[in-house]
Design a protein around this nucleic acid. Sequence first.
DNA 1: TTTT
DNA 2: TTTT
Lengths: 164, 164, 164, 164
Amino acid sequence: MINRVILVGRLTRDPELRYTPNGVAVATFTLAVNRTFTNQQGEREADFINCVVWRRPAENVANFLKKGSLAGVDGRLQTRSYEGQDGRRVYVTEVVADSVQFLEPKSSSEQRGTTAGGYYGDPFPFGPNQNPRSTNDPGFSRIDEDPFANDGQTIDISDDDLPF
Amino acid sequence: MINRVILVGRLTRDPELRYTPNGVAVATFTLAVNRTFTNQQGEREADFINCVVWRRPAENVANFLKKGSLAGVDGRLQTRSYEGQDGRRVYVTEVVADSVQFLEPKSSSEQRGTTAGGYYGDPFPFGPNQNPRSTNDPGFSRIDEDPFANDGQTIDISDDDLPF
Amino acid sequence: MINRVILVGRLTRDPELRYTPNGVAVATFTLAVNRTFTNQQGEREADFINCVVWRRPAENVANFLKKGSLAGVDGRLQTRSYEGQDGRRVYVTEVVADSVQFLEPKSSSEQRGTTAGGYYGDPFPFGPNQNPRSTNDPGFSRIDEDPFANDGQTIDISDDDLPF
Amino acid sequence: MINRVILVGRLTRDPELRYTPNGVAVATFTLAVNRTFTNQQGEREADFINCVVWRRPAENVANFLKKGSLAGVDGRLQTRSYEGQDGRRVYVTEVVADSVQFLEPKSSSEQRGTTAGGYYGDPFPFGPNQNPRSTNDPGFSRIDEDPFANDGQTIDISDDDLPF
DNA sequence: TTTT
DNA sequence: TTTT
C-alpha cells in the first residue's frame, strides 16, 4: 500500500500555525502548482493543493515560508470527512507532508554577505530526520477538524491524530 | 512545478467508463490505500482516493480491474471546482493517472496453462507508451463535470480537457 | 533537496540479510522492474535496481520475500563509492528503502482457510512506523562496504551509517 | 511495474549536449542532492545522481541550466551495462528524466524588466507535453554508450533507444 | 479562497 | 459512498 506525493509549487498565502490541546504544532498551507500544459484557451492553469505538516517542520514552515514562496513537499495523500455546519458530510483530500523543502534563494537582506548574487542557502532544517518531538507550547490556538475551513465548529484534534 | 503521485491500493468498487462527446474514453475509480500506522484504537485506517484515467488505459481499467483489485497508479494531483446542485461551489481533489498497473495475479481460470500456481502475468498494456489515441466510439455515455458525483447536472467535458 | 524513489518489481533472487558489528540488520535485494515500452526488437526489457533496507523491515524482507516476489519500495537514491579489489574506485547507485511493500497474495499453503482463492493478505508490517529499533542479534555476519559485491574486502559499515 | 524518481538538487557542472547519428538531442548532467541528515561527523553529505534527458527538453537543459543551477527532475531509474575499456562489464544506474524543472530565479541581468527583485520566472518549456520531436540538427557530436564516461569507446546509441 |  |  504505497502512498506518496511530491510537489513543487508556491504558497497561495501565508501558512497558518496552530496547536493541538497538547501543544503539538500543525501548519497548513496551500500550494499552487502550475500545470505544464495549457488549456484550449492557451492559458496555463494551476492545481491548488492543501497541505498539512506537523511538529517541528510546522514551525519551520510558519517561520520561513510566506505567500509566494517556492516550496517542495514530500508526503502522502490523506482523505478525511467531517460534519459541515449545514449537517452535510464534507470530504477532504489533502497532503500530509513528511518534509517541506524551502526552495527560495535567501532574501536580499540576508544575502548581503554573498558575492555572486542569487545562490540559495542551505535548506532550513526541514527533513524527517530532525527528531521531531512534541513541543510543549501552552497552545495558544486550537485546530478545527478541518484546518482549512473556518466553519466555526472547533472540534479539537487530539494528539493521537498525529501521523507519526 | 513538480506534481507526482504514486499509489498502490484496492478498488473500492468496479470502475466506471464513460465517453466524452467526441468519443474519448475516461474511467474513474476509487483506490483504498491502507495506512501503515494505526489510530489510537489500534485500527488500521485507509485513505480513499479518487482517480481518473483517460483514453486507452481507461478502457483497460474498465476491462481488467474490478472491485477489490490491487492496482498501482502513477499520476498527478488535480484540483477542480464545480457548481453543486445547491448552487454552492464544490472543490474536488483527484489523481489523474498517467499509467495504471495491474497488480493481481491472473485469475485461476486464466491460470490454467500455469504450472506453479500463483505467479503474476505480465501487466496488461497500461503504460504511457501505448500510443494513446482517441477512440471513435459513438459515445454511449456522457461525463458530468464531476465524474465522481452524480449530482444530476451534466455539463459536458470537452475533449480539450484531456490532460495530454 | 528532494530525493524520492518508488518502485514496483520482482526480486531477482532471495534477499540477503546481514548484521553490522553492533547487530543492526540490513537486507539487500535486487528488483527487476519491467519497462512499459519495448525496444526496437519488440522485446520488453527491465531495469535491475539494487535496494538496501535497514532494521526491522530488513528482517521482514528476509522472512517474507524471495526470488520472484512482487514488491513495492518507497525510498531514496543513494550514491557511494568504494575501493575495488583492483584498487580502482567503484561507484554505486542504489535505493535505500524506507518501506517495502509485500505485493504477493498469500501462498497457497497459507491460503487454505480462504474461500475464493487468490486474494491478498494484509501487507506484513513493513511500514516506516513500525518503530524500527536496533536488534541485538549477535551479528552472525558482517557487511561489506558494498553489500552487493562480494569482492573480498570486508570493511565494516558502522551503525552510524544508518540512514535514520 | 512502477518506476518513478523525483529529485531536486544542483548541477555539479554544466550539462553536456550531444546528438545521436539521427540528430536526436540528449543531454546529461549530474545532480547533487544534499541529504537531510548528517553523518557521525556532523557533516551533511550529498548523493550525486547521473541524469539523462532526450529531445527538446535536452536542448532546454543545455540552454538554461549550468553548474550550480537548482533543478527538479521527474523521471525513472534505468540500469545499463557496457564493455569498459579494460574489457570488464561496467554497470550503470541513472535517471532518465521525463521532465526537468528549472528552479532558479531569473538572473539579475534578465531581471531588468522586473520590479520587486527575486521572483522566479515561469519555468521554461520543459514539460512532457511540449510535443517533443526529433530535431534534425546535423549532429555535431556522437554519443557513447555510456554518456557519462569518456572511456574512448564510442559505440553509437541508435535513435531506437529513445525512451518514447 | 488562490501562487509567479 | 468505501478495499483486503
